[in-house]
Amino acid sequence: MARAGLTAERLVRAAAELADEVGFENVTVSAVARRFGVKDASLYSHVKNAQELRAGVAALALTELADRAAEALAGRSGKEALRAYADAYRTYAKQHPGRYAASWLMLEAETAVVGVNRRHSELTRALLRGYALREPDETDAIRMLHATLHGFVRVEAAGGFEHHSRSVAKSWARAVDALDVALRNWPDEEPTKKTR
């Protein structure tokens, strides 16, 4: 067999599919090799190690998320943009749980991941232009927005909301409404008090 037409891109895509099926933590070089019906050694001419393979999945996930966020933001502003942006992330996480988990992979040395993270920051700043925030408020708002949206999605994915009578979808909508209110009414920063 001619190495099953292996390329780095095919391996990363297979690893991403595997992550969605069995969880990102279970993605290994051996598991991907089995998917292609080859020995582990056949993969090492395309990826250096498991870390590089996992970083590839993270970069793929971040790229896909950024593409969805960009599409959601197109032609929208304010609350409409915020809702579309938020829903794009939540929908992606539900459709691709393993890839979404990979998107949390922090590998500072991996330039592909760092570059795509920068794109997410730019998209979030584009969203916030509709709220007319300036620095440092914009950075604070980005952190609040990401913590709220991703925190909600991660708790939901872990089953943390299953034992509540309130619909998760309604809570999600209310959380986005609350973010909109907070962004439209961003508080002025209190001057720091001098300490003796």
Score class of each variant (00 low, 15 high):
M1Y: 11
A4F: 03
A4Y: 02
A4M: 07
G5Y: 11
L6A: 00
A8D: 02
E9F: 00
E9I: 00
R10W: 03
V12Y: 00
A16R: 05
E21N: 04
V22I: 03
V32Q: 02
V32F: 02
G37R: 06
V38D: 04
S42Q: 15
S42W: 12
L43P: 01
H46S: 02
H46W: 08
H46G: 05
V47T: 06
V47G: 06
K48S: 11
K48A: 12
L53S: 00
A55E: 07
G56C: 03
V57L: 02
A61M: 07
A61S: 12
L62I: 03
L65W: 01
A69M: 08
A69T: 06
L73F: 11
S77T: 15
S77H: 14
K79Y: 03
A81E: 08
L82Y: 03
Y85M: 05
A88V: 08
A88F: 08
K94N: 03
H96I: 04
P97L: 06
G98A: 06
G98M: 07
R99C: 10
A102N: 05
S103T: 00
S103D: 01
M106N: 14
L107E: 15
A109Q: 13
E110D: 15
E110H: 14
T111Y: 10
N117A: 14
R118V: 11
S121P: 01
S121Q: 12
E122D: 12
R125V: 10
G130Q: 01
P136S: 10
D137Q: 11
E138H: 07
E138L: 15
T139W: 08
D140K: 14
T148M: 12
L149I: 13
G151I: 06
V155L: 09
A157T: 03
A158W: 00
A158I: 03
F161H: 10
S165Q: 14
S165M: 12
S167V: 11
V168T: 10
A169C: 06
W172H: 06
V176Y: 01
D177F: 02
L183P: 04
D188V: 06
D188R: 14
E190Y: 05
E190S: 13
P191E: 09
T192I: 10
K194R: 13
K194D: 09
R196F: 12
